[in-house]
Simulated assay, not measured.
Amino acid sequence: MTNAHTQKTVSAVETSFEILDILAKIEPAGVSEITEEIQMSTSTVFSHVSTLVQEGYVIKNDTKYVRSLRFLEAAGTVRQRCEATQHLREHVIELASETGEIAGAATEERGQRVILYRSAGEMAAGDKLPIGAHSNLHWTSLGKALLAHLPPERRSEIVAQHGLPRGTGNTFTERDALGEELERIRQQGYAVDDEEHLSGVRGIAVPIFDSQENVIASLGLTGPRSRFDPSHLTSLLRHLERAKNESEVRIQYYA
């Protein structure tokens, strides 16, 4: 939708994207269900959905609509464009295999954490997060590893834009407390999510830097609180630091 920073937009395009966002949450959904969410006339919603079907971005199954696999194709080409982080897929797969946990790589876009790669090991337990999932930076280890190493002015912009919403009782929702946490992350070189996004789930992540010392991604491991105790986190950190070192050497070599 439009805001104070938008100079000129096309409302019809905004509506189509809003419908796609609604489908992402409630698909499969019929026109009436979408209409209830978007609060527009049934005829308007039907016209937009029919156009999305015609263009191949939505599929109709009986009277229900779902997004098509064209989004998978689009996401794949976007991810391939990120040359500096393509090799992280190998490390994510290795980390999941070595540790048995859920491994992931993420980057920052528009002030949010975006999952680039994800792989589940044999002991994996946790949320089933899709590739490309966006989330606030301040409440996961992958996100905090990124946020801690962004320029101060960029961090301020992100907090001003997205705020510090609460995920659980452990989420950092005050700027000063978050600032202390990010300083601690910079000093120790890794970030920990202590049930700050989801109750019962912990994570640990390290930042990945390019040859100019800009943070471009993060690598992390996620699992249940019962298993992610201090000794296990120490063991996982060794795996992450090895992957981080190999990754940064490769980035510098190909830069």
Rank of each mutant, 00 (worst) to 15 (best):
I38M: 04
A133R: 05
N3Q: 02
G104R: 09
N245K: 12
S231G: 05
V10D: 11
L52V: 05
Y117Q: 12
A24S: 15
H5S: 15
G76W: 05
W139N: 14
L23S: 03
A84H: 06
S247G: 07
L95H: 06
G189C: 06
A96W: 00
N170D: 06
V45W: 00
P28G: 06
G220K: 11
V10F: 03
Y57P: 01
Q161D: 12
P151Q: 09
E14I: 04
R184Y: 05
N3C: 11
W139Q: 15
I185L: 04
I158H: 08
V45A: 02
E55L: 13
G126V: 03
R89C: 01
F17V: 05
D229W: 03
L236R: 09
R184G: 07
K60T: 13
E241L: 15
E98A: 13
I59H: 09
I38A: 03
A205P: 02
S11F: 07
E36K: 13
M123F: 12
A191T: 09
H149D: 06
H91T: 02
H138I: 10
A12G: 09
E180W: 09
A160M: 14
R242K: 10
E109K: 11
D210K: 03
E157G: 08
A125L: 14
S119A: 15
E37V: 01
G56R: 04
D176N: 15
N214I: 12
Y117F: 15
